[in-house]
Design a protein around this nucleic acid. Sequence first.
DNA 1: CTCTTAATTTTACGCGCGTAAAATATTAAT
DNA 2: ATTAATATTTTACGCGCGTAAAATTAAGAG
Lengths: 356, 356
Amino acid sequence: MQDHDAQMTKRGPGMGREKIRNMEEFAAKSGVSRPTASKYFNDPNSVRLSTRRRIEEALTRYDYRPNVYAINQNRRLIKTVGIVVPYVADPFFAEIARNIERRCIDAGFSPSTFSCHGSSAREVEILDHLRSMRPAGVLIAPLGRSSDREAVEAFCRDVPTVLFDSNIEDIGATFVGSNNFQSIPLMVDYLCRTGQPPCFFEMPPVNPNANKRREAYIGAMTQFGHEPSVLRIDGQGWDFEQAGHAEGLRMLREDRFTSNTVLCSNDRLAIGLLAAAYESDIRVGINKGCSLRIAGHDDHPFSRFTCPPLTTVAQNYEAISDRSVETLLHLVEGDDGGDSKQETLFEGKLVMRASA
Amino acid sequence: MQDHDAQMTKRGPGMGREKIRNMEEFAAKSGVSRPTASKYFNDPNSVRLSTRRRIEEALTRYDYRPNVYAINQNRRLIKTVGIVVPYVADPFFAEIARNIERRCIDAGFSPSTFSCHGSSAREVEILDHLRSMRPAGVLIAPLGRSSDREAVEAFCRDVPTVLFDSNIEDIGATFVGSNNFQSIPLMVDYLCRTGQPPCFFEMPPVNPNANKRREAYIGAMTQFGHEPSVLRIDGQGWDFEQAGHAEGLRMLREDRFTSNTVLCSNDRLAIGLLAAAYESDIRVGINKGCSLRIAGHDDHPFSRFTCPPLTTVAQNYEAISDRSVETLLHLVEGDDGGDSKQETLFEGKLVMRASA
DNA sequence: CTCTTAATTTTACGCGCGTAAAATATTAAT
DNA sequence: ATTAATATTTTACGCGCGTAAAATTAAGAG
């Protein structure tokens, strides 16, 4: 049987029926030694061109691929990068994850993305899992306030980690995010120029961004000579639309908004408030005939399609993704980047749409 | 130094400074043999209670965890499950993924979720990566039409696979999804009872669901004695809101809708169309004063918060997730489930909101 | 106390690969 | 052809664990 194999019709690349069990066998088939094959798989350019061709020719005849577990058990640096986001159903994080994944692949790493789905217990589980994966590095957007600070801190001590989006003081080697103290004043300034100074609509802060945005709002209003007015609503977890809708309804009914202009701490909250306003027959927008203006923050991918389209501040998704990965790669290379924690903040861009 | 260790203050469970290098060392510390420790880690209940206590006591003193790569290299069944979704930024898939992940964990597996982000190239990359992970099984919601059919088929031959949401004929052992031929007629019936029979608004079908929904629409309209009217729009990829908005604008301007009631092939498309109607100053809803009704399909998590809230058909997320995992576990256990491909379809539930 | 049974240890092997050092072969230049 | 500079092979070891079979021990029943 086997000695007729060479005459049997092949069904295309990698379709040979002879299964290769390991690199030893594959090396034999391609006429090189196993260490040479090993070298090839780690870097095809590290072997002589003629050798490379021999190996690649064999690869078209046999569908062999090195066993990742055997590789990772022996390699010093495991070519895996972990990505952890708090809530992947939030398109903001989905989009960031997509960008980060792509850049990791381009750099020769295999990304593994995990979502905490808003649960700190899950966050701990994920970190635990990631620890045993011994990845080259990890990019994590922590849940924030509800994170198990000790768990995250311990993790950062053991694994090269870059925090993004949501910072935790004194944890991790690096942080990459947005500068709320630039973006919020930008929006406040715009709102003041175009109508009544805004009040600030926020949920209990699930992460430091929420806190910073409130502080930035208060600072900006004070600086512009207006009285800040913060409306904190109930609600927990990551159901921002739900909270914005439920509490928005109540506050509209009870006439609790202190201005006809509401700045929400993020777009998802604004989307909930838009729904509440619609349900309350209140026309939202900057045009005449409208009695309420609503603005958000983040430029959530769906904000263009709300009714009316949402005026907001765009975070620089690409810059954040790029810089995060870039920084992690430096970390992995061994550049400690000095002793103190390094923080990179990008600026937001005003996106003027019809809602405010 | 080391001989004083026992007197040094411990900082809590697992905080001992003596690093354990491998199971050999750990077994020695806990006073059992390595194979016994190995047995314990595979199933704590498989060892004598007194032995178990000895091991667990040692676990509080040393932070040791078995090396996953060494484990997976030797184990017959790797306790990992792959989950592949076409587009994780679509909250429908984010929600399904969350449910599936949880059930996998409960069953003792480690889920790894991957999103194709709408790219078939990425889908192939992911399948390739998954193949080398040798997971116990994989749950995949294929991209659909743009999938590399051969790649998916070959993958299904090598790895126990359950398809969900989007079926590919004759591929995989099992499919779990929704019955479009029940849900669409349900919605058509409702729309006919409450107003004008709907026209059908769809994108070029990215997956079989889109096709089936159109067919189901045509069938239902015919059965109810109405003339079906399908409006296919341009657009590619997964930017449904974008396409619904752009093409919706054009069709409203050119008065192309053949009915004042529009059934969209999914909620995301409906969201885009809602935005287009708003921008065109057309009031949408079932109430008087409204000139257009819009309905969707899926009960996308944000559909409750559109303006007006979207009337739609809810897919049974939990049932789909549960059954998918359940089926996969059977497959992994060795229940081939017979020769022919097994398909499970769940029914949709009408969700009446203000948009139609 | 003896016997039976279940749990554990011992012994031994293998998984598939990385990696280092020394020996050898190849290549290009002199 | 000789030499020097690479590339490759050989040799040898180790990674951390699963697993199987045989030998030993412990627990429970009589």
